[in-house]
Design a protein around this nucleic acid. Structure first.
Length: 293
DNA sequence: CGTTCATCCTGAGAGC
DNA sequence: TGCTCTCAGGATGAAC
C-alpha cells in the first residue's frame, strides 16, 4: 500500500528508534517473509543477530538498513537489511511484552532490552532480505530502481526523456519504478489530476514541457503528502508507532468517484486501468481519442 | 529490446 | 447469517 510518503514516514521512525541498536535476536514466523533472501530464513536470522543497525535509507518505496561496519570507522557498510512493505507491510516499534499482531512475520529483539522492531504484513507481498551494498551504498535489489524526486541523483531531464520515449499510457510510465520511483496508484492519479492530463494519453505524444510539469506535480504532491504524514484509509498504513497520516482528506481524484472536481465541479469518474482503478475529472482530463494502454 | 499480463496473499464490503 | 464476488497503497518474471 505505501507509496513514497508513507515509506518515508516509516524510514524516519526507524531512524529515530532503531539506529545504533544491537540486534540480540530475530524470530521469523514462517519462511515467506524471507523468500527473497536466497540463502534462506535461517541464514537471515543468523547473519542479523549481533549486528548494529545503521541509519535507514530509502529509494522510492524500498527501505534498507545498513549494518554498521564492525571494524574501521571509515569502512563503508558491506551489507544492508532490505525491506519492502508491498501492499500491506508495516514496521512497528513495540514493547517486548506486547501481544503478537495478527499478521506478525518478524520480530527483532535488541541487546538494550528496549522496544522490539516488528514486521507485520497482512498480504505478505512485502519481505526482508540481507544484501550486499555497492560502492554507493545501494543494495542489489534496489539497483534497477530509478532515483525518486527527492534523491540528489534525481535528474528531471532524464526522466522527461524516458517518458517521451515510451509508447504507452503516461500513467504506466509514472508507475514504472525504473523511470521515476516512489509513485503508486494514489499519487499517480493525484499528479495527473493536478496536471490536467488523462493517464491513458500516450506518453510519447505529450510535449516535454507537459511531461516536465507532470513530474513537478508528482514531486509536489509527494511532498504535501509527506508533510501530512501520508495517506491512511484504514489501520493498514500507520507509522512505526501505529499513528495514521491525514493526507486522505486532501485527495482530489483518487477514491473520489462521484464527488465534484475541486477545480470545475464535474463529478470525478472511475475507470478500469491495468487491473485496478483510475480516478480523473472528465472535464479537466479528457480521454484521448485513441487511448494508449 | 520494450510492453503487457498473471500471480503472489488476506480481508473488507457489497449484493443476494 | 453466510455465500460469492470484487477490490485494495506493489513488484516480478514470463510471454508476447
Amino acid at each position: 500500500m505505501p507509496e513514497l510518503p508513507e515509506v518515508e514516514v516509516v524510514r524516519r521512525g526507524l531512524a529515530a528508534h532503531v539506529t545504533g541498536r544491537t540486534v540480540s535476536g530475530v524470530e521469523l514466523s514462517g519462511s515467506r517473509v524471507a523468500r527473497r533472501h536466497v540463502p534462506g530464513p535461517e541464514d537471515l536470522v543468523a547473519r542479523l543477530t549481533g549486528q548494529v543497525l545503521g541509519e535507514a535509507h530509502r529509494r522510492g518505496k524500498y527501505l534498507w538498513i545498513p549494518l554498521a561496519a564492525p571494524d574501521a570507522a571509515d569502512e563503508l557498510p558491506a551489507e544492508g537489511l532490505v525491506v519492502h512493505l508491498g501492499m500491506s507491510g508495516q514496521l512497528l516499534v513495540r514493547p517486548p511484552g506486547a501481544p503478537d499482531e495478527r499478521h506478525l512475520h518478524a520480530r527483532f529483539d535488541f541487546a538494550d532490552g528496549g522496544p522490539q522492531l516488528r514486521f507485520v504484513d497482512q498480504r505478505t507481498f512485502g519481505g526482508l532480505s540481507l544484501d550486499r551494498l555497492d560502492g554507493r551504498g545501494i543494495p542489489a535489489p534496489v539497483r534497477h530502481i530509478a532515483p525518486d524526486p527527492f534523491d540528489p541523483a534525481y535528474d528531471r531531464p532524464t526522466a522527461v526523456e524516458r517518458l517521451k520515449a515510451r509508447h504507452s499510457a503516461v500513467k504506466r510510465g509514472l508507475l514504472d519504478q525504473r523511470v521515476v520511483s516512489g509513485i503508486g496508484n494514489i499519487y499517480a492519479d493525484e499528479a495527473l489530476w493536478r496536471a490536467g492530463v488523462h493517464g491513458e494519453r500516450d506518453s510519447s505524444t505529450l510535449t516535454r514541457p507537459v511531461l516536465g510539469r507532470l513530474l513537478d506535480h508528482v514531486r509536489d504532491v509527494l511532498a504535501a503528502a509527506l508533510a501530512a504524514g501520508g495517506t491512511s484509509f484504514d489501520r493498514l498504513y500507520v507509522d512505526v508507532n501505529g499513528a495514521s497520516g491525514y493526507f486522505s482528506r486532501s485527495l482530489a481524484a483518487y477514491g473520489q468517484a462521484g464527488m465534484p472536481c475541486r477545480r470545475c465541479g464535474t463529478p470525478i469518474r472511475r475507470e478500469a486501468f491495468m487491473n485496478r482503478s483510475s480516478y480523473s475529472c472528465p472535464r479537466c482530463q479528457p480521454r484521448p481519442r485513441r487511448a494508449a494502454r
